[in-house]
Design a protein around this nucleic acid. Structure first.
Lengths: 160, 160
DNA sequence: GCTGAAACTTGATCGCC
DNA sequence: GGCGATCAAGTTTCAGC
């Protein structure tokens, strides 16, 4: 259930610069990147290929705007459970994985067991999600925190 | 401070299919996408262009693997503040925006005022972040939830 | 408004330094 | 291991249907 701690990849300054550019804008051309890191295409391309193979670069995706899609409501859901057996955990896992409105799910240390980030159309849609979830898996206690304003949201990880 | 609610873009089934593909993998070629949605290149390209112009597609980024970068610790930070004046809010905003370890920040409804998602190397690095933050802005109460396991993490929004 | 082809830009490869 | 030229493949545009 818990994955092995993987050894961090050895990265030099140029690698970090490339990654930093790509995680801000992956549409940049090789020429652009090469110019900005002060190298030419081939070495940059080789580094990117290696970073992909090493799994440092996981993939490349389009980011969509929640508002344009009518997803106006975002909740953080704090979950306490009384059940701690493996079957329960497995059922909970497949439930959150199966629901596309669950953007993120973490198992926590401490008295709160799980946190979910959920994006839905509105409060009614959240309630439907909530009712469906608790009917699927037994949950002891739920607190929903409603986001009023997204102050910051990035997919870029700190590289220093 | 709070932005106007924007009217959702009108999307048909083909638009949604295209978006769904692109938010999973933006390296797909136009030919691929066209084949999968059952259309040919030009109309698909026109749709993508319009979706970009309408702001439905915000951008395209590379996703990096936290473990490969040695970012083993992820915290959700629940913040209560006693200050509610605009200067404080502005200072807090610029503090979280300036710190790259803050991946996400939301202003909340209810008795918890803010939630942050923070990615750092380890617990020591979190403590450094925490000390720096409370020395910059006055904060009444902080609870940190430590993630033990990321059960799910996606950038893909639900499109149904 | 879709199709198919042409023009052009970019990505990927190879031999040379 | 980096550079510049080369080839293949992709994107963008456009005339014709």
């Amino acid at each position: 259930m818990s994955e092995d701690r993987q050894t961090p990849a050895r990265l030099d300054d140029t690698d970090r610069k490339i990654l930093s550019l790509l995680q801000e804008d992956a549409t940049l051309s090789l020429d652009d990147i090469a110019a900005r890191v002060g190298a030419s295409k081939t070495p940059v391309w080789n580094r990117i290929r290696k970073l992909r193979e090493a799994g440092v670069i996981r993939g490349q995706v389009a980011l969509l705007d929640p508002d344009s899609l009518g997803l106006d409501a975002c909740f953080f859901v704090l979950i306490r459970t009384s059940e701690h057996d493996p079957e329960w955990a497995l059922k909970f896992l497949s439930a959150v994985r199966a629901r596309p409105e669950v953007i993120e799910a973490h198992r926590l240390a401490g008295d709160i067991d799980y946190i979910l980030k959920v994006r839905v159309r509105n409060a009614r849609a959240y309630d439907r999600f909530y009712q469906a979830l608790i009917s699927e898996v037994k949950i002891h206690n739920v607190t929903a925190l409603l986001s009023m304003e997204e102050l910051k949201a990035t997919t870029a990880l700190p590289l220093d």
